[in-house]
Write a protein that binds this DNA or RNA. Structure first.
Lengths: 275, 275
DNA sequence: CGTGCCACCATGGTCCGACCAAAACCCCCG
DNA sequence: CGGGGGTTTTGGTCGGACCATGGTGGCACG
């Protein structure tokens, strides 16, 4: 049992506050001394929490006061905490994570397919074979997808992929919205089409083909999931085809809103490129 | 001038030691008290450094002693420090980063292309136009590639991509081996072929095509770079087509070796899957 | 009344020393 | 040779203290 220390609890609290948008970017957060009395701990404890926040990239601490850092400086690691912010995570965030996950897996599939040795290839095909077996629950199915993804990463031999992977991969399992909970799974025929494509890709070491297969496959499930969550959470029938036209009349979470706005438009702020 | 604090210096020192493989995974690193006297600072300063290391995912600190964490727990953020470990970074690492970067950019291109609005599309084409201009140094060229990549990320509207991006993107600029220093750049014709493909992809909002174009383009440069660095640093003529057959008779850096081995084979260690 | 300078205060960075609980270690006993 | 219990070490936290710096308000001057 990993007894959670006070400093990490405090760090988690502050981190979530920041991610939730309690403090706007650039805003000063309370002084170490203030927080120390507020939390009833010694200042050095708060201090350690601050160091974590800084390393996470969500805060910048400097004489004069610690300030909330812009999202550009945050670590990829914040993704998991974004998902864990609320009991039922923001569907928008979930969707973005799934989208990135699809892309990541496509990348892994490409590199893994190109590099896999015979044994790895066999293992990959084995998993794919298991996936085509009928009677698989969504749970086991997504388990296999994860497994497959891991094997691709492994076969790619690329450590950077590995690192990206475990900042992304398991984080959805925590949430109620992880893979495996859609009421309207994609059609079996469609899935199998992509699976077959993937088999061919692996057998011929065609990275591009594998990449496409995985991406399309992921997209199928992602779409099911999105439809489910959006219909459950709210009711926006439009297919988000026009991102910037979206009302964005959201609930709370200014940080996320800012993140989206930043990721979406962003350019207007710093229009003139360099050079 | 960001005056670097003692705790961050110490954290950096320890981090580099760990990444360099001075301590094997799981090994205990010196106690806070030891390090305090060794560095001539107070224990609490070392302590803050430790918190950073833990947040970075390179160390796990617990009563009884802090231990080096397995690579699986490390943050993507260590990549930049891996590149900065030596004056001339390990070509293997550089190659892996470039490879991941290619994949990432391909992903960004796909999502960005699919989602870009008219303005973003115009901006993308603008950059591509600049890239086809003759007389560009490799420096400016890679600058444009970066810019293009950023715009894709922006157009994708995906915050996760954004986060991944700035853990990956600028880190090569520090090194002597960044894009732009190859003596044998890819042929102009080949490059332009992909650029044209990319233009078509953007105009038709074809994510897959864009992804391919970017990936192939990146690969061109990556190959030139790899050839250059390998010929300069050492002499291994083989094209690394057989990863596991590679002698791996490297110099030092057990951590990286472990990373590679882990990412490459890995499976044998934990053979039996779950479920 | 407006403006610029300066002292003051809050803040982070670091240090000292101390206590506790748990893990690690070691030696002695069976 | 193995196991058990006590000792040592280690991290977690605390209280307080000093310093340099940056922010801020007030005071004197124009």
């Amino acid at each position: 049992m990993p007894t959670t220390t006070q400093d990490s609890s405090i760090a988690a609290l502050l981190r979530d506050d920041i991610l939730r948008g309690q403090y706007r970017c650039g805003e000063r957060l309370p002084s170490e001394r203030d927080l120390a009395v507020r939390f009833g701990v010694h200042r050095s404890t708060v201090r350690e929490a601050f160091k974590r926040l800084e390393q996470l990239g969500v805060a910048r601490i400097a004489p004069g006061g610690a300030r909330v850092a812009p999202l550009e400086e945050a670590s990829l690691d914040i993704v998991e905490h974004l998902l864990a912010l609320d009991d039922v995570p923001d569907p928008e965030i979930v969707d973005q994570v799934l989208e990135a996950l699809s892309g990541f897996r496509a990348m892994a599939a490409r590199l893994g397919t190109e590099r896999a040795d015979a044994g790895q290839r066999a293992r990959l095909l084995e998993i794919l074979d298991a996936m085509t077996r009928s009677g698989l629950g969504n749970e086991q199915y997504s388990e296999l997808v994860s497994e497959l993804s891991d094997r691709f990463v492994e076969a790619s031999g690329n450590m950077v992929l590995r690192l990206m992977g475990h900042s992304l991969r398991p984080k959805l399992a925590h949430t109620r919205l992880g893979y495996g909970l859609f009421s309207d799974p994609p059609s079996r025929a469609e899935v199998e089409k992509h699976l077959e494509q993937l088999v061919r890709a692996i057998e011929s070491a065609d990275g591009t083909l594998a990449s496409e297969a995985i991406y399309d496959l992921s997209r199928l499930f992602r779409r099911s999931l999105r439809e489910r969550s959006t219909s459950a959470e709210r009711s926006l029938p439009e297919e988000r085809a026009l991102p910037e036209a979206q009302p964005m009349a959201d609930v709370h979470e200014p940080a996320l809103a800012a993140a989206r706005a930043g990721a979406r438009s962003g350019r207007s702020a710093r229009a003139g490129g360099r050079s």
